[in-house]
Amino acid sequence: MKILLIKTNKESFHELEFVRSIENILKNNKIKFFTSHYKDLKKQDLKNADKIIICGTSLKDNHFLKNIDYFKWIENYNKPILGICSGMQIISKIFKAKLKHRQEIGLKTLNFKKEFLGLKNKKEVYELHNNYFDLPKNFTKFTDSKIPQAIKHNQKPLYGTLFHPEVRNKNLILEFCLF
């Protein structure tokens, strides 16, 4: 099992916050991984990965949305992908959902009406975003919140969380990687 972590941050100093935190979870659980920025991705990277995690970035960084063409490969990719915050926004945009503005920062309780990568019922999550996307067509929303916080494609293993599981829900990342 080899996980590809894709960085979405424009400013490299943010990696310590949004990428290293996930790398540490994988390291602690002896899960093999390699990391690449989305602008440096090669076809071979996508081929070599068994699963992909698209990491988040800072509150003010929306550069990835301007560069959405770098992510067109997602449309025809069939291996499991987990998009975290900006990662979920990227997946949503690729599947033609509409961008909306809403700031959420800090701890929040979400109610998972169906099990989502090990999370069910009420769970505390950490939010850090200024934007979100409507639910893309052919995706299911797993929380009863107004805005989509946890989504999955109806046919493909494509997952997204608007919240940051690396903060309070580390097991979600392990569930994605190991099962």
């Binding site: 916050e17 290293r20 003010k60 700031q103 920062i105 800090g106 903060v167």
Partner: peptide
């Protein structure tokens, strides 16, 4: 500390500043 981090994030966003937390979630 989500309490500290989230409050500083909000202040930085309001003032249009980047907020860097390089030790976030560090073992």
């Amino acid at each position: 500390s989500c309490y500290q981090a989230s409050r500083i994030q909000k202040i930085c966003d309001k003032l249009n500043l980047e907020c860097f937390n390089p030790l976030w979630q560090k073992p």
